[in-house]
Design a protein around this nucleic acid. Structure first.
Lengths: 191, 191, 191, 191
DNA sequence: TATGAATGAGAATTCATTCAT
DNA sequence: AATGAATGAATTCTCATTCAT
């Protein structure tokens, strides 16, 4: 029996890729660099991922899945709407600040031609529960009467910006500032 | 920088570059394609821009200058704060929706390593008047007491997201929706 | 005006390729070696031929065209059939011996998957006049009543073998031997 | 060469290699594909054959030996020359048509640099009895007075071509056509 | 022996930039 | 200034061979 295919390697490759691709973009990402960062031979990379496109697409889904799952953990169906909203918002912010690369990568690639249609679809399906939640808020007059996409943009847009600011060191959010951010988000979308 | 060269051609190159670079990113952008789109020979491109880095840096400043100038046109020092805020916000939204590529390019490149420190600095200086305006709002208790960067993020983040949604065709904003967006932005940041 | 595209280069490339590909086969042929043999940079090669497949396909057609044209020059419609046959046979033999690489390349690649269907078709069309000539011989009871392909194989098969023998130095044909070869070919196919 | 290894597997490898190598040539042949076709792991292939060169050289000798042996079976020293010639010619044709890959492989590789000098020599030695037979025919005025290599080329060249035509489906030889082919061969070389 | 994961040298192709015209 | 052919370094991906199990 040969060495068994090391499942752990896939994660190492994901991490190496994520670390590198944010600085360079898709075309700037060098497979040789990924391999080096993951401490593999170039050829080995291609055992695990057929090519660069596949690597990026699978990384995207992997990250989006991980992130979505984590955010939705904060959801408790027994909570009142605003309480649920608050918990998930803080969850989203904290996760994003804790792993900014993950969030930035998802954001940066979500609308590009480097992802296949299929990847985009699968990515969007992950968000379905969130969309349902927002819709229920709209229906129950807790939130402004607007398309879900728009409401989500209002809530998430500022978070993305905050993550960028923290990442580049312009800002370091205090607990009170986070609270303020939450209030702003809620004031924006609440009915 | 003295520019003895055909100003018209430079604009053609800017337009060609902008059209192409959004889909491809910096590394995916091919100088030959820029030349073709601008109806020039490759060599000619290099008469106007020393190399690809310079082209992108100058394009960035060019666009940021154009956009900032246009937005600030909406500013009238005689207006009350909220009125001025409202006018500029709508101005910003309309300009962004009218020329989404311009905005997306600025957004996309603002924090990357493809821009030199100098370019970034010059770009930020252009925003100084806006920062001053926001600061005055904070000082005069019109806006929440938070760092300017944070306030701006709250206001601009959602706009960026809306432009992306419109660009990809997910959403087509009605006048009422624009009004709603404004209210949300104002509700978020007002004191 | 830039340097004009040097049409002569194409021939230089053809020669370099032909010299190399016979020893190596398609997959063994290195574009870098072709470039070196043609005294070009690798990139230059790709200006003239989109890729290796195209290079080989165009080389094939080029050689087949040249050879066919040359052989058919020996054809005089006023000659009696056997006389015409004899002239063309000697023409074919002499041309093949003079430029054995050309013949061997055509032979070696004619039936491989390295050539596209289109190339093969175009190559076969070149031989149409020869087929017509053979058919007329069959119809007029000068040649055995067999499919043209078979008759041609009988005539050309031995020539291919002779070229290989001469090329590898096993044999150096004398005038009398050539005459004997002709007689053998004629004795084989005549009715 | 002592071969303590599974003779059965060796044949499987030979068959897999032969099936693949004709389409691809030496350089196009992938050891992984051979292994897969032979239902072995790549590593196992290397237990039986030190490397690709060795595999091809041994396959060549194997096939040439098999084919030569089979053809020579048709030889009966008691037969008159022409009768012996006829039997072997038909034997050669039938074997070639029955296993065209074998013949084409031998033909295709016989003169290439993928075979070592030693392999080529050993291959030629196998043909020695045939050469002796042809020489006796020349000496006894049954055949034209020409070097053996030339006589053989006249006889085998057309057969190679016929096999190619049958293989690609252009032609399907009838019994009468085979008979005609034999007559043509004999008319060509007989004195 | 058998396996198939790992390796890394090597090859095709691209493209920013230069330079002859 | 303008042109576009030429250059060759750089990058992706492949595959013969090795080696840990």
């Amino acid at each position: 029996m040969a060495r068994p295919k090391d499942e752990n390697k896939i994660n190492t490759i994901y991490e190496a890729t994520l670390k590198l691709v944010l600085k360079t973009g898709f075309n700037g990402l060098k497979m040789a660099d990924v391999a080096k960062a993951a401490k593999l031979a170039t050829g080995t990379l291609y055992i695990y991922f057929k090519n660069k496109d596949v690597l990026i697409n699978e990384l995207f889904l992997h990250l989006k899945k991980a992130k979505t799952t984590e955010v939705l953990k904060a959801y408790n169906p027994n909570d009142a709407f605003e309480e649920a909203f608050r918990k998930m918002w803080f969850s989203y912010l904290d996760i994003s600040l804790r792993e900014p690369e993950r969030m930035l990568f998802i954001e940066q690639f979500a609308h590009t031609s480097f992802l296949t249609k299929k990847t985009k679809q699968q990515g969007n399906q992950l968000l379905a529960p969130l969309a349902v939640f927002i819709e229920s808020g709209i229906k129950n007059k807790k939130l402004r009467h607007l398309p879900v996409d728009i409401v989500l943009s209002q809530v998430l847009g500022p978070i993305y910006e905050m993550v960028k600011l923290e990442k580049e060191g312009t800002v370091k959010l205090s607990t009170q500032q986070k609270q303020a951010l939450y209030e702003m988000a809620w004031n924006a979308v609440k009915l």
